[in-house]
């Protein structure tokens, strides 16, 4: 699965995207797997209320199932316009 990071989430994790081998059932499970990996993930995901997630490029929530999903992206609230 492709996992993408934007803005300060990208800066904290240190890469813009990576391939993650996961059997996580939901976004929340994927976050827990990443957090268990390394401290930089623990820090980046320490406050989920400050984060947004897109699943296959559609804004979603942390309980979204990941079956069949190709791409998950994590980022702070958007500031367009």
């Amino acid at each position: 699965m492709q996992v993408l990071y934007f803005a300060w989430v990208r800066e904290r994790i240190g890469v813009p995207r990576e391939v993650v081998d996961t059997s996580a059932e939901t976004v929340r499970d994927l976050v827990a797997e990443l957090q268990a990996k390394e401290e930089r993930y623990t820090l980046a995901f320490s406050d989920l209320s400050a984060l947004r997630v897109a699943v296959d490029q559609v804004l979603s929530d942390f309980d979204t199932p990941l079956a069949g999903v190709q791409e998950v992206a994590f980022f702070p609230p958007m500031t367009g316009g």
Binding site: A7, A54, L59, A73, P76, M78, T79, G80, G81
Partner: peptide, 25 residues
Amino acid sequence: MDYLKSRAPFWKREITAKGATWVAS
């Protein structure tokens, strides 16, 4: 405009002499 501000995936960062800051929503 209301949707674009909060639902389009853009992130702004301001750079001044003091450094760089991500704009908070």
